[in-house]
Write a protein that binds this DNA or RNA. Sequence first.
DNA 1: AATGAATGAGTGTTCATTCAT
DNA 2: CATGAATGAACACTCATTCAT
Lengths: 190, 190, 190, 190
Amino acid sequence: MPRPATDKRDRLADAALDLTYRRGFERTSIADIAEHAGVAPGSVYYYFKTKDDVGQAIVDTLSGRYLSVIEGWRDLAAPEDRLVSFLDMYLDDADNVRAFGCPLGAVCAELGRHSPELGAAAGEVFSALIDWAAGEFAELGFAEAAARARATHLIAVMQGAAALTHALDDPEPLQREAAHLERWIRRAGE
Amino acid sequence: MPRPATDKRDRLADAALDLTYRRGFERTSIADIAEHAGVAPGSVYYYFKTKDDVGQAIVDTLSGRYLSVIEGWRDLAAPEDRLVSFLDMYLDDADNVRAFGCPLGAVCAELGRHSPELGAAAGEVFSALIDWAAGEFAELGFAEAAARARATHLIAVMQGAAALTHALDDPEPLQREAAHLERWIRRAGE
Amino acid sequence: MPRPATDKRDRLADAALDLTYRRGFERTSIADIAEHAGVAPGSVYYYFKTKDDVGQAIVDTLSGRYLSVIEGWRDLAAPEDRLVSFLDMYLDDADNVRAFGCPLGAVCAELGRHSPELGAAAGEVFSALIDWAAGEFAELGFAEAAARARATHLIAVMQGAAALTHALDDPEPLQREAAHLERWIRRAGE
Amino acid sequence: MPRPATDKRDRLADAALDLTYRRGFERTSIADIAEHAGVAPGSVYYYFKTKDDVGQAIVDTLSGRYLSVIEGWRDLAAPEDRLVSFLDMYLDDADNVRAFGCPLGAVCAELGRHSPELGAAAGEVFSALIDWAAGEFAELGFAEAAARARATHLIAVMQGAAALTHALDDPEPLQREAAHLERWIRRAGE
DNA sequence: AATGAATGAGTGTTCATTCAT
DNA sequence: CATGAATGAACACTCATTCAT
């Protein structure tokens, strides 16, 4: 029972996300995306009306990936463990972070520079991430305002650490800031 | 006695930096830069061999601007005040940060995505900034390793806060993280 | 008991004629025609082998329409009245003539420019129209050669008047030439 | 003393007019025009901003040609002779009229179908032509309104005759209507 | 009998780059 | 010293056409 349409569309969106992360949105041509997805060049426009539409699909794919990863942490009983998993996700992916930056931040910046609409859409992924982290901190006993402040801090520091690790081509900032944040999270959980 | 050649070159580099910050490097054409600088289109290639060369000039200009700003803080007697000036620089420029991201981080990311060479060059501006901050923290009494760690943390957090403020189109993360860091700096100065 | 296949084919031909008249043949895509006819995009090629084939169907539809309109004038007893009905047909449709030109002439020119074969086919519609008008003039007592000459003049002047009215976006040439021709016809009928 | 810029631009406009007349505007690609003018494909966009801009240049070229032809009839002392020259111009070009229609009417219709703006611009060429003919009839002693009516009739009939000659692929309508109009003009000059 | 999925060839357009002057 | 003219390669996008079902 094949769903070829959805399958190809997904493959195209995945390829577009991947190439945008590694080369940038502007430097990624429609033909590149098609080739990467193993699809005929003209076919991209069967699934997407414009390149901006591909950008929107990138945001959706990105959002879906982060949401499903977070979903996977539901097994963990303690909020601290879930928050630390967020840090570990970056550490496990340190090579890519070093080479291309944060998979979320880099792509959002790239799309935002292409068009304000895409930038706003990408911003919502950040919002969702902060919402999730704020929920975890709330579960740790923080009042809403404090929980949000902590969540924003967590995301901001990881964004900055990833940016520095990429800019300096050095995993150290990422590792050090993650270690810092882990202690900060554990301390909050006590 | 001005040297008009140099003047034009500088104007071109300034225009290139400005446009790259606001639109991105890829979306900025050589003709755009020439027009922005009030220079004849063909002349860009008199001053720069290739567009990548323009990218290098952007890095140099960026580096010069940050260095001279830092230089301007020499008047301040206390290292804490100089470090806080770094934070204030962002707060004073909050509108641009919100609209286009960190003037340093956004441009570095943009150039890094264009070519590894430019990325490495841009990375050195970050290194210099960290070196400066590490020096200030050393002056506050921290041992070298600790001073570097603190400097990296400072830059990373501001990078992340700027990125979030841009992505969310909301000045709050920048303001909150800056306030946080100011207390953290003042505490270190006691 | 309708034959749905034929019905769809007719609807497609009608849509194609309509769009060709208003936008031109080249600017009308197969997908446009399908959408306009309320038919699935892929289905056009079930009824027509190529786009040129659609062009042929346009000519046939056009021919059929003019023939049936002429047929409708059979009720009128006097040839003068039938010939004047031809003029009135244009005057009644003056808004479209102004906006898009003569429904026959514009489409013929469009198809002729697309391919000589279609141009020749479209030319036959003109021939048929001239034949009809020549028959009417013959009935008014003109010898065959004179009747054909008058018929050709009638059609030519209306073509030119329609073309001018369209080009100048002004109904005046059409109205004036039609009034002229009506007197000329009435005079011949005395 | 070469004026290469103007020269190339003119050659491109000439090629564009020629191809539009023979193939239609839509079926003429920018690459076709460049090749026809002996110019590199990318160069068209150095002289014209868009294809619509090329269309405007076509109108200008067309207008210039007709104006200069009319100018050439200044030598003729009698208005009748000048008006008959207009008819002769078509008869001398009968082969092209038969193959492609009226050089003015066909191109105007083609451009008008491409965009209303171009259609309006093309319409002004017709206006100018009518103005000229009206002036000649005025010189023959007709009051302004009558002169304009006659001028419009002259142009309209030639348009229609050319259209029919093209549609039927038969020079007869053009020749017969031209002969008719010549007698009509000579009669007015007596 | 009918169609939705898919595509390759071609379109208008942009732009980094070259070069004669 | 400086530039306007010119260009070829690449881009986003369109569309007539095919075909498995």
